[in-house]
Amino acid sequence: MYEIRIHSRGGQGGVTAARLLALAAFRDGKYATACPFYGAERRGAPVVSYVRIDDQPIRIYSQIRNPDLVVVLDPSVMEVVDVLHGLKQGGKVLINGTDTEKIHGVAACAVDLTGIALREKLVVAGSPILNTPVLGALAKMGIITVDSAKKAIREMFSDERNVRAAEAAFRELVI
């Protein structure tokens, strides 16, 4: 089983990112679950979402304690949340941004999802949309296939800019 924990802030689309990721994995023929951990539904509060991907049906509902991958959609949450908590030995980190210098001792990579979203004018109510571009980055990391990433995005959103943003993230992520 491959376990992913996504850190974001309310309103940034972390929950939708988890759902998109689960959908893409599912389109890859895997079993997948996306479980958001909700507090009150407030904009701006740190939010955690979980995605599990496996070849077997998934029966676990408790939170992910030892993720294989941590995705940080909003680097500012790192000031208040220990995003590396429980990360598996050999686990990976994907950060939205331009650098990984705040992460020490684990394999971290970064891609400027916010920049991509702004370039594609993917902005809703003043917030750049991060949940569709991040799928491109996750495809680059081999978590899901590019085909399924695009399929998942198109199933949930009709605006093709979302797909273009994911493609850009795929191109720009250096592993």
Binding site: A18, A32, Y61
Partner: peptide
């Protein structure tokens, strides 16, 4: 159905 654990979990 269990609140959030199932109501908000996405599965096939």
């Amino acid at each position: 159905l269990d609140g959030f654990l199932l109501s908000h979990s996405m599965q096939s």
